[in-house]
Write a protein that binds this DNA or RNA. Structure first.
Lengths: 126, 126
DNA sequence: GCATTACTTAACCTAAAGGTTAAGTATATA
DNA sequence: TATATACTTAACCTTTAGGTTAAGTAATGC
């Protein structure tokens, strides 16, 4: 199944370093396709495909100005990524003990989460 | 070229909704592969492959306890994603005019003191 | 009208992603 | 030792990703 949910599309679009470089370039301003091609050893059709992927993910929009097709970054999907990853912030900001405490609090709050692990805390991180 | 940079690996791993669901499950605590399989209509080998992708991206680690292979979330790559996306925060938090000003400041900063705002706004967003 | 510039689309190729079933491996237990 | 449980690996299949070259389209300018 292609799973066309937008977060998957966004992550897939961001998984290519060429496309991230294009976004970085667009962060400093709208520009043409030919200009976007310049840094890469890649044919223009290849870049055109990358742009189509970025566009489908909503990460850029394309206009028309004479024979140029100026590309502009669109940040909404990036905001969604930031929102998604934010829910994991605790995992890299808190110490392990704080984290484990937090998880215990969550599970306690849940009432009776399926705690099928018998030995409880065998795997202590060094 | 496979481009094995870690950010690309991380984004690619996160581009699949099954894998994001697995991470979400692991956020509430370490668990077994069989347990991770339960919510999905998918064979265990398929889940096993997903876990391998997550492991290669550094998003999980796997232990051994008797015949179980407990999986644990690892947040470092998520922190990297948060760091990467952070550089685009301005694009969704500021108004267009504020943004354009900011970009002009950046470009001016390459040389001397920030000073004026040029006209140059042909592409005004609706 | 015709050439030039700036693209996009089509056709093709190879490799990788994501699923399957079947077979293999590690550990616990009767 | 044999059997069950919990996986992983192998072999295979189909679809998609990412690149190529060649041809098509849109606007400008002589």
């Amino acid at each position: 199944m292609p799973t066309s949910d937008s977060l998957s599309n966004t992550f897939a679009a961001l998984a290519d370093p060429t496309r991230r470089a294009i976004l970085a370039r667009l962060a400093s301003g709208e520009t043409s396709v030919t200009e976007l091609c310049r840094p890469f050893e890649m044919s223009m059709p290849a870049i055109s495909k990358h742009l189509k992927v970025l566009e489908r993910a909503g990460l850029i929009t394309r206009g028309r100005e004479a024979q140029w097709r100026p590309c502009r970054i669109e940040a909404a999907p990036l905001r969604d990524v930031a929102g998604w990853v934010e829910q994991y912030r605790q995992f890299w900001e808190q110490s392990f003990d704080r984290l484990e405490l937090h998880l215990q609090e969550i599970q306690a709050a849940g009432g009776e989460a399926a705690d099928k692990k018998k030995g409880a805390k065998k795997h202590v991180r060094n």
